[in-house]
Design a protein around this nucleic acid. Sequence first.
DNA 1: CGGGCCCTTGATATGAGTCAAGGGTGGTGG
DNA 2: CCACCACCCTTGACTCATATCAAGGGCCCG
Lengths: 221, 221
Amino acid sequence: MMVMDLAQYQLGTSLQVPRGAHLFRTQDEVCGDLHFVRSGHLKLYQPCGDGVNRIIDFVRPGDWMGIDTIGEQQRHASALALTDCLIDVVQYRQLAELMDEEPYSCDLFSAMLSREIDRQQLAAAILRSAGACQRIVMFLLQRAGPAPQAPSPEMHSPLPMSRQDISDYLGLTPATVSRTLSALKRNGWISLGQRGFVVLSRSALEQVAAGAPANIIQHAA
Amino acid sequence: MMVMDLAQYQLGTSLQVPRGAHLFRTQDEVCGDLHFVRSGHLKLYQPCGDGVNRIIDFVRPGDWMGIDTIGEQQRHASALALTDCLIDVVQYRQLAELMDEEPYSCDLFSAMLSREIDRQQLAAAILRSAGACQRIVMFLLQRAGPAPQAPSPEMHSPLPMSRQDISDYLGLTPATVSRTLSALKRNGWISLGQRGFVVLSRSALEQVAAGAPANIIQHAA
DNA sequence: CGGGCCCTTGATATGAGTCAAGGGTGGTGG
DNA sequence: CCACCACCCTTGACTCATATCAAGGGCCCG
């Protein structure tokens, strides 16, 4: 069978990180390792002076971390566990050796980095062009994943991060995020808990994400 | 001597692209090649419905293009020459072979992709947090390059793209870009031509970029 | 049961967008 | 070589979305 993901090579060692703990911090020096998330959620952020944190990304099971600092001397971000996490720690040297032996793994690795560049370009494009409502709906759809098969209902999707984190990530304020989520709920398009949500009308959300006029959203009566 | 950049391996073939011509388009299928810019400037953009173009990036001499679509079937963007360009076309297969023979080149390539991810993350962070004036000043400083040695004056930096392109890239409107540039000029911080500019007070610009209150900018008298 | 923190919601302020008009520049054709 | 034309850049007045400031409520944890 074809190896589809570098994670299947069983490199590296396992590591548990409890909720609220740091996997690494900006000031850490060692950078020879990559991290693969087996389970749990983390946030990548840059503490930038004051108490203000710039959220770089949210990391989910199956994602890699640290591929932005290969060959660098210092981390560019801190990684904080939003839930209990199970992490694989992989030395870049190990990967390099693997790529040396098996050219195909080199292609896998290049493609992975390439996809990450594309993801970041897409994120930047969204930040450039989309308004608040559109950003939030895109964020929700991304977290909800692809549509389930016809008869099955939409699943509950976790939102392990705070509203503050969401707003930082989307370039908005907590107030705007809260307002918009409330409006989406009022319209019956999502159901909303403190740390999760359920898509109720995927088609409506997809229309907003596609750029449909968001005037649909009204202030609370 | 140490090889510092993949471009020094003299792979690939040369190609001239005149101003206004496309190097490739979104709909092109072939994706086995990368492009290295020897001279000239290009813009990467996505034609997204209507006449609206999303600017992905501006590409300068020494930059690589196409590293966001390694292993993909289709281009994610179109590349248009803003000036006459000299391009090296490099097959990814060639690079892969090189990496197979010389492990060090593999590290170079990984590091290059890694840096690109970091660049995109930084760009996204700027779009999330910075206001119009801050974005424009950061853009100018980035294009002006690092400060020259003490006695030498600031160099003239080219702006080969239209105001429309700049505004798309920064997530603003042409009107706002024009207004802000005019204000910077009025303050004596830059001198401004149609297709270029000169930094007159780097310290002032750096303060704004660092987040200094941008109220310094007033409406035209 | 109590307290702190985060989330929600309202009223108001403001920065950037929109609409629109005038002027400069570069390119084309006579 | 000059004149014309189209396109883009600049600038102004106004609008609107989102930030800001502020208060109340609910949830989780101790």
